[in-house]
Nucleic acid binder design. Structure first.
Lengths: 150, 150
DNA sequence: TATTGTTATACTCTATAACTATA
DNA sequence: TATAGTTATAGAGTATAACAATA
């Protein structure tokens, strides 16, 4: 029998914070190079969208411009990211990852994925598949609805 | 074909922060009574474990004692929770939810579950089932491994 | 001496409001 | 006047280190 959305919502509300806490703890402990989750996510985005203006990064992260500016301050202080003035619109600032940032991101991603997958290693295959399906469904559901806000 | 734990880890690492951000946004916007996610979770725990000492709450939340003490400060300031000296061990402080806290928790839980389930309403039944299965698997995987730390 | 909790301090995350520079 | 970004300010969340009270 299929569960109702309400029953599932209860589970989601219980487990997502647990999972998030686990991910943060892993990033802190296992050499994820002292990157917070938002720092990690913004580096990922900046790497794959090199030259994006700050506003686009903010939009992707779901943060306000001031929050994003401050986040980037921290990354720039550590030379992981570079601000450059846009040549076409001098109000804009474009962002690019530095070689150091790129390398650190690789290490962090590897370390974090490794400890997450270690935690899931004992799960039976059908549960792994359920997790993949669930992640894809949640991503769709929560990204779509987020647009409401804009 | 079953996915590998590593591939699944990548999805988890991508989607959990998105889901968490969504939950936070819903709690902020849709009347979840100005409770942060940690406040919400600690109220839930204190309600179902009335009289627990602060240390147990900290352990359940996966926080340090000082962080938890400060979190409880905020809840007590709003009269949602009460500290009482333990009668058996005077070093200890036991926690209990107040009637106000209980009522607010009900409202917050209802509102948040409602907006989460609204976001998932359009998902087909087999995806809902996958999410339930996944939440149960992740809870097991991430709670078990967390014990490493202790 | 070990345990429970609090206080002091510091950093990140996040927001809103006010501001600057450019379009 | 509208837009892109920064600065100022503030509050929550989190940690570690130092401390107090009790066992």
């Amino acid at each position: 029998m299929a569960p109702t959305a309400t029953a599932t919502a209860k589970d989601v509300l219980e487990v997502i914070p647990i999972a998030m806490r686990f991910i943060k703890a892993q990033m802190r402990e296992h050499g994820a190079a002292d990157l917070s989750v938002p720092q990690f996510r913004s580096l990922l985005f900046i790497r794959s969208h090199s030259g994006s203006p700050l506003g686009e990064v903010a939009e992707h992260l779901g943060l306000t411009a001031p929050s994003t500016s401050k986040l980037v301050d921290g990354l720039e202080r550590r030379a992981l990211v570079e601000r450059r003035d846009s040549s076409t619109d001098r109000r804009k600032v474009t962002l690019a990852i530095t070689p150091e940032g790129d390398e650190l991101l690789d290490r962090a991603a590897r370390a974090t994925r490794k400890s997450i997958s270690a935690a899931m290693a004992a799960l039976p295959p059908q549960e792994l598949r359920a997790i993949e399906l669930a992640m894809s469904a949640l991503k769709r559901a929560f990204s779509a609805t987020k647009r409401d806000k804009a």
